[in-house]
């Protein structure tokens, strides 16, 4: 059966001045998949995401989200995804309620859907409704991150992009987030998750891509062999310890 592509990145190149961060990133993420994008700190994971969500221009390549090109049809492409940054990214002078209403308004979310989704996510993430009446600046780091997670899903996106989402979350919240992610993909949606926490990725992801030196050096389907979840960490360490590659992948994701 042919798989539908949710995220398609083709030959993505991005430099900061003379420094080439992304030399040739090519990857495909399929609908209904929980896709992990892993690498050590500062290797280009966030830059790849920034290019995908349209906050950074790139030098070459193509990115499409559910078939919408992020450069040529940015508005349609941006409607496809919800995004969670590693650091809470929201208007802290607003109350939680104001912020969620703001996001719902911008994405033209149906009021009833908004209410139901809010209730569901508040329950899951163990935020009290009364917390929503307080300014976000009075929240703890974890609460801010939870509000950002709720805001990213409030418009029912088909793709959920998470950049190190567990930073600052306690163990219970990480568990709740994992549950939400699993529920989300069960509904046929797609998740693109970056993390340097290889254990988390190995535990929940369907497929994983490892990035090094500006290339996707390995793509692995963790569903094919249950043992591969256990060996992922070893493979990850091998890649970075050996530091071997400077060439692009072959389209299948393998070097």
């Amino acid at each position: 059966m042919e798989k539908n592509i949710a995220i398609e990145v083709q030959h993505l190149k991005k430099s900061y001045g003379k420094k080439e961060v992304l030399k040739d990133i090519t990857l495909e993420v399929y609908q209904g998949e929980l896709f992990g994008f892993v690498g050590v700190n500062g290797i280009g994971k966030s830059t790849t995401i920034d290019c995908m969500i349209g906050v950074k221009k790139f030098d070459d390549g193509e990115i499409s989200l559910n078939g919408f090109d992020i450069v040529h049809d940015p508005i349609s492409a941006k409607k496809q995804f919800g995004y969670v940054a590693s650091e809470p990214d929201c208007y802290e002078v607003m109350t939680g309620y104001n912020y969620l209403s703001f996001i719902a308004g911008v994405y033209k979310v149906d009021k009833q859907y908004f209410l139901d989704k809010c209730k569901y996510l508040l329950d899951k993430l163990q935020l009290k409704e009364s917390d929503l009446h307080l300014p976000i600046m009075s929240y703890s780091h974890g609460m801010k991150q939870k509000i950002c997670i709720i805001a990213s899903l409030i418009h029912n996106p088909k793709i959920w992009i998470l950049d190190e989402p567990t930073v600052g979350l306690d163990i219970l919240s990480v568990e709740a987030l994992n549950e939400i992610m699993k529920d989300y993909v069960k509904e046929g949606n797609t998740i693109f998750l970056t993390s340097h926490n290889i254990d988390l990725v190995a535990d929940i992801c369907d497929r994983v891509a490892i990035i090094n030196k500006g290339y996707v050096v390995k793509t692995k389907d963790l569903r094919e062999n249950p043992k591969s979840r256990k060996t992922l960490k070893k493979e990850f360490l091998t890649i970075y310890q050996d530091d071997p590659i400077e060439k692009p992948n072959d389209g299948e994701g393998n070097k």
Partner: peptide, 22 residues
């Protein structure tokens, strides 16, 4: 019931409101 409190306004109005808040 969040029904009465959680309001969803049109995008333009939402953006205007945000500017006022900021």
């Amino acid at each position: 019931s969040l029904q009465k409190k959680m309001q969803v306004y049109p995008p333009i109005f939402t953006l205007i409101k945000k500017e006022f808040i900021l």
